[in-house]
Design a protein around this nucleic acid. Sequence first.
DNA 1: GAACTCTGTAACTTGTATGTTACGTAAGCA
DNA 2: TGCTTACGTAACATACAAGTTACAGAGTTC
Lengths: 105, 105
Amino acid sequence: MRALEALADPTRREIVDLLAEGELDAGTIASRFPVSRPAVSRHLRVLREAGLVNVRPDAQRRLYALDPAPLAELDAWLARYRVFWANRLDALDVHLRRERRRKER
Amino acid sequence: MRALEALADPTRREIVDLLAEGELDAGTIASRFPVSRPAVSRHLRVLREAGLVNVRPDAQRRLYALDPAPLAELDAWLARYRVFWANRLDALDVHLRRERRRKER
DNA sequence: GAACTCTGTAACTTGTATGTTACGTAAGCA
DNA sequence: TGCTTACGTAACATACAAGTTACAGAGTTC
């Protein structure tokens, strides 16, 4: 669950959000954030090590692209808990129906 | 996305896993981990502040229960990326099979 | 080949998260 | 009324994460 730790940082989440729209080079990514370029470079490294992004060299630039595999893994982890809020919604539904019947009387 | 930050810590993820099976008091939770009871108390506080658990007093004990609401929120955030791996189900499948084999060892 | 561009790494500072031990407090029990 | 149990909080130590500036290296351009 390395992805969770990488995504705990809000800047890295924003980078992921950004890359969801397409490949970008490091400089362009950095220009979108209020922190220095080296700082963004470090964030990109963390994302890379978590497998969330892939890099592709293009001349002297480096193009970053989203890799959804770890997100799928996170989704799989979350699946275990899906029944919890599903049940809760069912319970809420039951409650509302009961209330409605009660009021209709 | 407060839940993500709370879940970045592996101990807290384990606590959540534990509570998925049912309500537990603080002492019992702490006994399952190799860290001190106050440390676990702190983790429980973080989970509480993230809305991931609820507390219910019972005599001098405090019973903790899972609250899935923030997980549902996380699921909603993740939904945005679901289309990305929908195209790559084969890759996920490979990964999950690998994980399963690893855990079986 | 010299100068410029793009990017990552090194070295350092600083804030925060996680752990520890010591202590306070509220509820049960002799 | 003590004494025990169950927790949380305070105070402190320490590791680590994220930021900065300075620098190095690879590629492009003239």
